[in-house]
């Protein structure tokens, strides 16, 4: 069980693909001007990533290592094409709002990166968990930034107008860069602080234990 906890925490926080590893930046910057499209992109990547992780880890013993990258690319491209057909048929609104970035999921570094770093070394179940964790990490990060950018840049949330006040710049690529950069900084700062607090606490506990042991002796 501990293994899955580590996979989940890594995907969501310590190895968060958006904030810690800064992967998949193109769709992030291109779509966070709208909360709806950024969340849609996150969920699409979540599905494609999970499926590709499962397929690749199932095939990891069959595919010779010399041609593994072309094989992965074909598998991912197939899944993306499928996702595109699915969205065009059943969710045309999302399909329109994602635009060109839908096809570019193929070259999203997160998917190929997880295939290379995790799925071709681990079993099907772990890979599926890893795909879901990383996909969720990506989705949550994109949605947070999408909400910030849309709320401040357009005065709306998920398309519903909330206030008149807006900073138009935050809905342009320039604002996307700014918000993304600041979000990374805040995220890293919080994680660093948390780690330091945990270390200090652990040291204190160890020292108390030592003192107690001495007194007892």
């Amino acid at each position: 069980m501990n293994k899955y906890k580590k996979i989940t925490l890594d995907g969501l926080i310590y190895q968060n693909p958006t904030f810690m590893l800064v992967l998949g930046t193109c769709p992030t910057l291109g779509l966070i001007s709208s909360a709806f499209s950024s969340m849609g992109m996150g969920l699409t990547v979540l599905v494609v990533l999970t499926l590709s992780n499962i397929i690749i880890s199932a095939l990891r013993k069959v595919i010779p290592s010399a041609v593994r990258i072309p094989c992965y690319i074909v598998i991912i491209a197939t899944l993306v094409t499928f996702a595109r057909m699915f969205l065009e048929k059943f969710l045309p609104d999302l399909y329109d709002s994602l635009g060109g970035f839908l096809a570019l999921i193929v070259v999203n570094c997160i998917i190929l990166g997880r295939a290379e770093a995790f799925a071709n070394k681990n079993g099907v179940l772990e890979s599926a968990a890893d795909g879901i964790a990383n996909g969720l990490g990506f989705t949550v990060a994109l949605t947070i930034m999408g909400v910030i950018c849309e709320f401040l840049g357009k005065g709306s949330l998920f398309g519903a107008q909330i206030m008149e006040f807006k900073i138009g710049m935050l809905a342009t690529p320039a604002g996307a860069f700014l918000v993304y950069g600041l979000c990374i900084a805040v995220f890293v700062y919080i994680i660093d602080g948390f780690e330091r607090w945990r270390r200090v606490k652990a040291n204190k506990l160890a020292r108390e234990n030592l003192l107690n042991a001495k007194e007892a002796a």
């Binding site: 320039a174 860069f177 700014l178 950069g181 890293v188 700062y189």
Partner: peptide, 16 residues
Amino acid sequence: AISGFPIAMVTACFIC
């Protein structure tokens, strides 16, 4: 916390 990617992105923001 700002060094590395965050400061690069703020720079990119100005170029944009």
